[in-house]
């Protein structure tokens, strides 16, 4: 593990909103190619931390680098190397499936010809060839989330940030969604994912559990279960929360 390359390095990250400290001196590292789970109850500060790493929000203090770039000075360079998908977001509902893919891929500088070929290939792997010309608004949530994820990794970023990507999605679609995450990880994309589904925590290479703005535990699911003498991540989480 130690020989792996670090892609996200966070030292003493603090984010305050007025008097409220949303992130209190967070420190952690994420290694290349791993699936890193960010766990915590609602309001624990997961999304705040993720938004800082994506360059959507500025930290109050701390040393933070993402993909080798500083989040204070090189946010635009970071943005070229990451993908992002949030539960709220979705693709443009009034655009068709292929129009959404074309837009985002185009923004990242891919050529129109390449986009066309990859789009066909992508829809085929997702089994969504039939909805190529459908508006996003007409698709069920699960399909949209799978598409949104595929769009987020279409330009083959080094890191993809997923903010509660499976919120409100049925268990079967969630399984399929995690298959997509594994596939991306195998392609060498580092996955940074926040969730509060504890079964999903089991799928991660390493997890980090947040509680009231602080990191309470960090390690592989196996290590944490051993440390807290728990059968599964659910128990780990409940023990920490107490």
């Amino acid at each position: 593990m130690n020989r792996k390359k670090t892609v996200i390095r966070v030292r003493d990250m603090v984010k305050k909103f007025g008097d409220f400290t949303a992130n209190d001196r967070l420190s952690f590292e994420v290694y290349e190619g791993e699936i890193f789970g960010f766990l915590g109850a609602n309001g624990a500060g997961k999304t705040t931390a993720l938004r800082i790493l994506c360059g959507l929000s500025l930290p109050t203090s701390g040393e933070i680098s993402v993909a080798g770039y500083n989040v204070y000075s090189d946010r635009e360079k970071i943005k070229k190397r990451i993908g992002y998908m949030s539960q709220k977001f979705s693709l443009y509902e009034d655009l068709k499936v292929y129009e959404n893919i074309r837009l985002y891929a185009g923004i990242y500088g891919l050529s129109r010809k390449y986009i066309r070929e990859r789009t066909d290939h992508l829809l085929e792997t997702l089994g969504l060839e039939g909805v190529r010309n459908k508006l996003i608004a007409e698709l069920p949530l699960g399909w949209r989330q799978k598409l949104a994820f595929s769009v987020a990794v279409f330009h083959q970023p080094s890191i993809v940030f997923l903010d509660e990507p499976t919120g409100g999605v049925d268990p079967i679609t969630r399984r399929q969604f995690w298959d997509l995450i594994y596939r991306a990880s195998q392609d060498g994309i580092t996955v940074f994912v926040t969730t509060h589904y504890m079964d999903e925590a089991e799928y991660c290479d390493r997890v980090c559990i947040m509680e009231a703005g602080r990191i309470e535990a960090i390690g592989t699911p196996g290590e944490l279960k051993g440390k807290y003498a728990a059968k599964n991540m659910d128990e780990v989480f409940i023990k920490i929360a107490r």
């Binding site: 959507l56 992002y84 949030s86």
Partner: peptide
């Protein structure tokens, strides 16, 4: 309002 502005903001669009 829709949140798509945020998605645009994480891209390298100037």
């Amino acid at each position: 309002e829709l949140g798509t502005a945020e998605q645009i903001n994480v891209t390298p669009i100037r």
